[in-house]
Design a protein around this nucleic acid. Structure first.
Lengths: 195, 195
DNA sequence: ACCTGGGCTTGACCTGGGTTAAGGCGGCGG
DNA sequence: CCGCCGCCTTAACCCAGGTCAAGCCCAGGT
């Protein structure tokens, strides 16, 4: 077994027989990405996803009007991929970019579907993944509905302490739905208030 | 079969043997709700969900600070329930309230889990449901990130034309994340612009 | 017909965040 | 060592939306 830690993590989501995991490892391919290299670009087919082994990624949505907003950051142990587009069999509308030299374990969705046909555990795992992703998005929805930009910022760092120092300020702003300028103002305001 | 239309709808999500559906109908209970009556209140156990047969509901999150925001409206054929809380086995933090005299088909999550143990089709259906819910929430996230309140309003009516005239203005505002006052202003601004 | 109350609008005023543009500053290549 | 570039900050100005408060409209009840 090449990735015992990853196996353990997945097994907490749904029971996963080691021999099934062995099959998964057999079809997965490792990939290294330089800083600023893309795992996926808008327009690419959403036919692959990966687990981050080392590094951090940002999922960027480039809107028709040119604005960039950030859907999520993903670090060690988390999944990257154009999930919504994959489910809808649409080309990716998301850019997924390494913010550090990174290393990932890539699966073709086609290979994953093969695994699903071999054992129900994969369908169960996929269900749990969908549910967890839903919970995350609903939490985010709620933050937009109820919290000010400043409150969202505080919460962001509470929930993602491991990203401290690894992502540029402007990306945090794009994640919060504000500009770099507004974020800088909010931070200086807080600094002052804390004397 | 008491609800052939519902059966058909579900069968489009995942293959569903009629005999399994019969079992589901056997454990489900119909419930009627008056206008303003709650299907679920904050603090209730999230141990049931339902399909709307007739009527409209709003899912309201009452924040600690007293503000009300609306997570979703649900009409005929859609699911109501405190989904995220159910997945996390937490008590509901959501109020689900009928905006019209309504009629729903209620399932206990416990009964649903029984069905799941009897046939994989239910797990597959649950997965599809999770995935669809995810897609909806991600779409909403994107709207908050990229669109102004006015653009969100336009999109809301494009996507929910069947709710026209059935939900009060203030609830639309609470769904968009703005106040009733702001919504009224936006609407009058648009009226003027259209001469 | 009248009152009442709920839901919507309007106005005056304030504030948070957008926009634009001008620096500051640290790292890196020449 | 200098100059450049990327990233962040600051300032001036503007506008969308929040807040508070008054008023309107209409449906329901008496």
């Amino acid at each position: 077994m090449r990735f015992p830690k990853l196996f353990e993590r997945l097994a907490t989501l749904a029971p996963l027989p080691p021999e099934e995991w062995a099959k998964a490892e057999a079809v997965a391919k490792e990939q290294s990405l330089a800083k600023r290299e893309f795992f996926m670009r808008p327009g690419d087919a959403a036919d692959r996803f990966a687990v981050v082994l080392r590094g951090v990624f940002r999922g960027v949505r480039v809107s028709p009007r040119g604005g960039e907003s950030i859907k999520a950051f993903r670090a060690e142990g988390e999944l990257i991929g154009a999930y919504a587009e994959m489910l809808q069999r649409l080309p990716s509308m998301t850019a997924i970019e390494a913010l550090e030299p990174s290393h990932v374990l890539v699966f073709q969705t086609q290979d994953f579907q093969q695994l699903e046909q071999g054992h129900v555990c994969w369908e169960r795992l996929a269900r749990r993944v969908a549910e967890q992703h839903f919970i995350l998005k609903e939490r985010r929805e709620q933050e937009f509905l109820e919290l000010s930009a400043e409150e969202r910022l505080v919460k962001f760092w509470e929930e993602h302490p491991h990203l401290k120092g690894r992502i540029p300020q402007r990306d945090v702003a794009a994640y919060l739905g504000i500009t770099e300028v507004a974020l800088s103002r909010i931070m200086s305001r807080r600094r002052k208030r804390a004397e």
